[in-house]
Design a binder for these strands. Structure first.
Lengths: 337, 337
DNA sequence: CGGCTGACTGGAAGCGCTTCCAGTAGTTCC
DNA sequence: GGAACTACTGGAAGCGCTTCCAGTCAGCCG
């Protein structure tokens, strides 16, 4: 009755109860060799009876391994994380981690203070490895993590240079596929709304667009750059229409911007896909909710998270995995049949 | 030249360099009293020169405090977490934690294995406190956390009973407000599409609906229950139209379901808001993307996360905060002017 | 039958920190 | 001038675990 309430059992108590030494108990817990089956059974029994759970801090101290990995999102837009994209990544990461004993730590570093905090966490080696997401331009974080000799896996790629370990979607290939689809369906006056050009994603997708246009011998009507937001997409679309009222297709390089573009097209009285065909990129849930439903490039976001985590676990366990580029594919809906 | 590369400095080395004992160095680091200013300065200098960062495991072991808090999401739908809702909660949590030294651990427990893992993490006291999200029906997790004598803050409320510490949005008030708005705009044949009735959210919103109808002396046309998904909302809307072709308003108790309802209404040839007015709930980004844009109840999701984290920090620091219900408010857009 | 394995075992030394406590000075007060 | 403070200081004892290492005790070979 409330007697055993307060203190949690320690390994010593388990050992005592099992009638063995602490070393033996530890070996049983950690499943290492050199334990007789009788000792093993006794310890396991004691563990169960006492409800023993190892103290992670003590273990971490003794082994110099924290037992956790960090997912760091460093960005200057505090709301970026609200994008469902991240939710999917996390679901993937979580799934991959579920089969290990690693716990996920999450740190969003948007403010200056947040970034300092992230740096402290990194330096303190609270995590055995780190996953970096949404690097835009040059992020000092990457270099820091590198210099700490911590395993680092980058999701996406930074704008310049190529990290040793990363997982990325085939953005360039996706951009090409999207554009090819528009061309194949007979569109000729094709414009693009590209995302921020200080991100590798933004650049790569647009590069795919330009490649496909060049291959087809077409001149892009015009491209507008927006900031990956719905409002930005709408504004860009409006600008495009103002300058090139006769365009017949738009490749909006993210679904969110595509949604904005659809809204602007509707406001301008254009029918989709009748007057203008629209292809997005990402295949987020909104893509199905827009009117008309959005033809888009699917990128395997959950897989991205999963593979990042897997790669990191591999690195921590001493393997040397290869960078990974995940395929994207076209999903045809109504906005560009 | 790679000399100091490998080992990180310890407190002993800092003390040595500063010419004081380890105790003094520790006191300086932790900013406790009883340190002369000369000693303090010497230690601070040594810390800087050595780039010393305390080892969190050692500290955790000595203080019996992990320095982290856990956000646990236990649900049976593995994709629920992809909902932007969670992203916003996390942004809020992160913001509140930024001013502390606590680190956020995130655990999604959808599978059986995930739940066991969550339980292990809880039992091992890897976290100093826990935030629980998306409890549906009765979740054993809550009782477990309670029994561990860990501070627990619940986001939303479980279906039955009331936790000691929770933060919730005023779902019932929101449901009332939404309904009152429909009534005030002259609608009389009002139906509702309620969410899962095994969640407190679902029940509370619908209760608000019923209250407002009763106060106005109106009989609900009919209510259909869906599962908070777009498809579910569309199906429910179709059923409603089948049975009550003359309804003139719908309160869809989540934006996602509202989006589905809009789609079904359009498919049935009804104009919104001409024939049927629609009010949603949540004020997610989709609410602005639907056509027509959705009148909805805004709930402060980010604030929910922030307040949960604040409350938890308070609990950990020994305060006894009060449960909190955050206000919701009506956002009028096109679907129900 | 002596000596050698090989399978186990338990003692003990840490991991890097916090914190209690006994102690040393320097001050103040009667 | 001595007692009683106050303001610091450093030694030492942990926190709960892992892991090295020196043993012990069978069994088995020649």
């Amino acid at each position: 009755m409330g007697a055993q309430a307060n203190r949690r059992p320690t390994l010593d108590e388990v050992a005592l109860r099992a009638g063995v030494s602490r070393s033996v108990a530890s070996r049983v817990i950690n499943n290492t060799r050199d334990v007789s089956s009788t000792a093993r059974a006794a310890v396991q029994k004691a563990v169960k009876e006492l409800g023993y759970v190892p103290n992670p801090s003590a273990r971490a101290l003794a082994t110099a391994q924290s037992g956790s990995v960090l997912l760091a999102v460093s960005h200057d837009d505090p709301n970026l994380f609200a994008d469902p994209f991240f939710g999917h990544v996390i679901v993937g990461v979580n799934a991959a981690l579920e089969r290990t004993d690693l716990v996920l730590m999450l740190l969003l570093a948007d403010t200056e203070r947040g970034k300092e905090r992230l740096e402290r966490v990194l330096r303190s080696r609270r995590a055995d490895g780190i996953m970096l997401l949404a690097l835009h331009g040059e992020d000092p974080l990457y270099d820091l993590a590198q210099s700490l000799e911590l395993p680092v896996v980058v999701g996406g790629r930074p704008l310049h240079g190529e990290p040793a370990w990363y997982v990325d979607a085939d953005n360039r290939g996706g951009g090409r596929t999207a554009t090819e689809h528009l061309i194949a369906s007979g569109r000729r006056r094709i414009a693009a709304i590209s995302g921020r050009q200080d991100t590798q994603v933004g650049v790569a997708r647009h590069q795919g667009f330009r490649e496909a246009m060049a291959v087809a011998g077409l001149e892009p009507v015009r491209s507008e750059t927006a900031d990956f937001t719905e409002a930005g997409g709408a504004a860009a679309m409006t600008r495009l229409l103002g300058r090139h009222p006769d365009l017949d297709a738009v490749f909006a390089e993210s679904d969110t911007m595509a949604a904005g573009a659809l809204r602007a097209l509707k406001a301008a009285g254009r029918s989709v896909p009748g007057d203008v065909a629209v292809v997005g990129f990402d295949d987020l849930p909104i893509a199905q909710g827009t009117d008309p439903a959005l033809t888009t490039i699917h990128q395997p976001v959950q897989a991205l998270g999963r593979e990042m985590a897997k790669m990191l676990v591999g690195l921590i366990e001493g393997e040397r995995p290869s960078p990974l580029i995940l395929p994207t594919h076209l999903v045809i809906r109504e906005s560009a049949p």
